[in-house]
Each structure stands twice: as structure tokens, then as C-alpha cells.
Simulated assay, not measured.
Amino acid sequence: MATYPFEPYAELPTLQSAVTDSFCQLVEQTLASQDTFSVSLSGGSTPKRVYEMLASRDLPWDRIHLFWGDERNVPHDHADSNYRMVKTALLDHVAIKEANVHPVPVAVDSPAEGARAYAQEIEAFFGTAMPTFDLVLLGMGDDAHTASLFPGTKAISESDASFVENYVPKFEAHRYTMTYPAITSGKEIWFIITGAAKVDALKAVVFGERDLNQYPSQGIKPTRWFVDSEAVG
């Protein structure tokens, strides 16, 4: 019988504490040998709790740069905005410079332009077309999407740009997302997957025949898995 390549966490709070502690440890290790730490953030309720916990940690926020792995096509003050979630959970509670916070420049009426602007900002920060984030945080949906790489969408096949607009028919809405080349260039890539709704998707991603169009999360090889017992069934 095939086994998962990780040991699941018995309880969600334990997982969230482990992610928080591991984040702080990675920041310390990274900044021992370089000036800044860059992270691509994930949306979702589980990461939100991690961000709330990070807000109480003594981290060198002046040396940490925050980016977003995906975003909804809504203004930053909208309830569905990933930026707004991070702002209320973390940014409003820590001493971080505005220059260190890099939200997606949402352009509701022209999302492709907003995505191109973010790709340019990423390139300007890293000095290369593809970023090399110190950490990429990712979740996975019950349809096996990750970031805003949804099944059957055009962004799955994007190989040149780091960040693109992606129309998602199931929502009849545009999303913004990092692409596979940008995500997989990360030095550390952590999958955070929780909840019973993910059981079938997780099985398909780990054990199923490779089909990125149906299971986009198969395109990611995480350096660490943070999975709770509910997600493995």
C-alpha cells in the first residue's frame, strides 16, 4: 500500500504552530547569510491563523519582504482580497515598512495589465525574470488547485511569465497567480493542506497519474508538507 511522503499532524492548531515556528527558524537561518528574506504568501483560513501568530513573534520585519502568490480581482479593501486578509491578520500589528510590502496591483477592469505590472515588480526586486523566493507558501483546494492555478485554465501552460492573469470559468472571474516556473524557483516551497474536503484531491495529487490540467498541484514538488490528519482521511 502506498504511503504519503509525510507524517500528518493530528490537530490543526499543532500544524499551525509548526508552520509558525518553522517560518521564524527559516528567517533566522536565512538572514544569517543575506540581507533580506523574501516570502510569497498564500491565502486561506489556515495561513491566516499562521499570520496572526507571526504578528506576536519578534521578527526583523525591516528585513522581510512580503509578496503574494495569488490574488482575487477585487480592490484591496474588499472582503475577498488576499491582501486585506494579510493586512488584518499581520500587517496592522507589526512594524514593517511600506516598501517591504508588495501587494498585487489589482486592476479590476484590466487584470492582464495588473499582472504584467506585478511581474515587472518581481523582476525589479530579484533582478531576474523568475524570482527566487526564500519561501513560497502554498495551499491546495478541494479541486487540487494551488495559488490560482485552477484545473483547465490557461495559466497552467504559462512558461515565460512569473505572474499572470488567469480567467477561472467556475467562478466566472479573473484571478492573478504566480506561474509554475516562478513557484518552483523558490528555495523553500511549503504545502499547507488541511481539512476533510481535501482528502480526494490530496490522494489524486500524490498517487494519481500525472495530469496537470486536472490536478494542478501535481506541478509542485514541495520541500516540506504541512498536512493535518483530516486531509489524509
Score class of each variant (00 low, 15 high):
V50I: 14
S33A: 15
S81A: 11
P60I: 06
Q34F: 11
N82W: 04
D80H: 10
M85P: 02
P75C: 02
R63A: 10
P47Q: 08
L66D: 02
A79V: 15
N73P: 06
G44D: 01
H78V: 06
R72K: 02
D92G: 05
A32I: 10
T88P: 00
S42L: 08
L90C: 05
D80M: 08
A55W: 10
F37I: 07
K87R: 15
D70G: 05
P60F: 05
L31G: 04
L91N: 05
D77S: 14
L31S: 04
K48Q: 14
S45P: 09
S56Q: 15
K48S: 14
F67S: 00
E71R: 04
V94R: 11
H65N: 13
L54F: 03
D77F: 10
Q34Y: 13
D77C: 10
K48F: 06
L54E: 04
G69S: 06
N82D: 10
H93T: 03
R72C: 03
H76L: 13
T88M: 13
N82I: 07
V39G: 02
Y51L: 03
D62F: 07
V74N: 05
R49K: 15
L59N: 08
L66N: 05
T46A: 12
W61R: 08
D77H: 14
D70F: 01
M53D: 14
A32D: 12
D58M: 08
S33D: 14
L31F: 04
P60Y: 09
T46R: 05
R84N: 11
T30R: 08
K87Y: 15
E71M: 09
D80F: 00
E71F: 04
V86E: 02
H93W: 09
H93C: 02
A32Q: 13
T46S: 14
R63F: 07
D77A: 12
F37T: 07
D58E: 15
S56C: 09
T46F: 05
R72D: 07
D35M: 11
L41C: 11
P47C: 08
M53I: 11
M53P: 05
H65A: 02
D92W: 05
K87G: 07
R49F: 12
H93V: 04
N73Q: 03
E52D: 10
R49E: 12
H93Y: 11
K87F: 13
S56H: 15
A79E: 15
R57M: 07
H76S: 11
G44L: 01
E71V: 05
S81H: 06
W68S: 01
